[in-house]
Computed example of a mutant assay.
Amino acid sequence: MQAEWTEETLQRITTENATLKQRVRQLTADNRTLDERLKAARSNLRFQDRRVADLEAQIADPHGPT
């Protein structure tokens, strides 16, 4: 089957393959970056939730320990 392929076809396939591999690398890096940002956002949200809970507790009992 390969004997039926022209040099031009083989070159085009090789180029497309290299392009796709580069795209996979880029998407993997983008995914890693977005995952790190998501983890940071979740951490910030947990911190804010704890802060809100502390403030609510202070409002509920203004004479209690701070």
Rank of each mutant, 00 (worst) to 15 (best):
A41S: 15
Q48L: 05
Q22G: 11
L20R: 07
R23H: 11
R37W: 07
L45E: 13
F47S: 12
R46G: 07
Q22I: 03
D54P: 00
Q48T: 08
V24S: 02
R46N: 14
V52A: 00
V52G: 00
N31F: 09
D54H: 02
Q26T: 09
L55E: 00
V52K: 00
L55I: 00
V24Q: 03
L45T: 13
A57R: 02
A53I: 01
R46E: 14
S43P: 02
V24D: 02
T33H: 10
A18S: 11
D54T: 02
T33L: 04
N17V: 09
D35V: 13
R25I: 04
E36K: 04
L45V: 12
A18I: 05
Q26H: 09
Q22D: 15
R37P: 00
R32V: 12
L34D: 14
E36Y: 03
A41H: 10
T19E: 15
E56H: 04
A40H: 10
N44F: 03
R32P: 03
R23Y: 06
N44C: 05
N44A: 09
A29M: 05
D49W: 02
K39H: 09
N31R: 11
L27Y: 04
R51D: 06
R23K: 14
L20D: 08
K21V: 05
R23V: 05
L34A: 07
E36N: 12
T28P: 01
R51K: 14
Q22T: 12
A18L: 06
R51M: 05
N31A: 13
Q26R: 08
Q26E: 14
A29G: 05
A18E: 11
T19W: 11
R32W: 14
R51A: 05
E56Y: 02
F47V: 10
E56T: 06
T19N: 15
D54C: 01
L38T: 14
I59S: 02
A53K: 01
L20E: 09
R42I: 04
K39E: 10
K39Q: 14
T33D: 13
F47M: 11
K21S: 12
A57V: 02
A41M: 13
Q26P: 00
T28K: 10
T15D: 15
N44G: 06
K39F: 03
L45Q: 13
A18R: 04
K39P: 00
L55S: 01
L20Q: 09
T33V: 06
I59H: 03
N17A: 07
K39D: 10
Q48M: 07
D54S: 03
T33S: 09
A40K: 08
Q58I: 01
R46V: 08
T28Q: 10
A40F: 02
T19H: 11
R23E: 11
R37L: 12
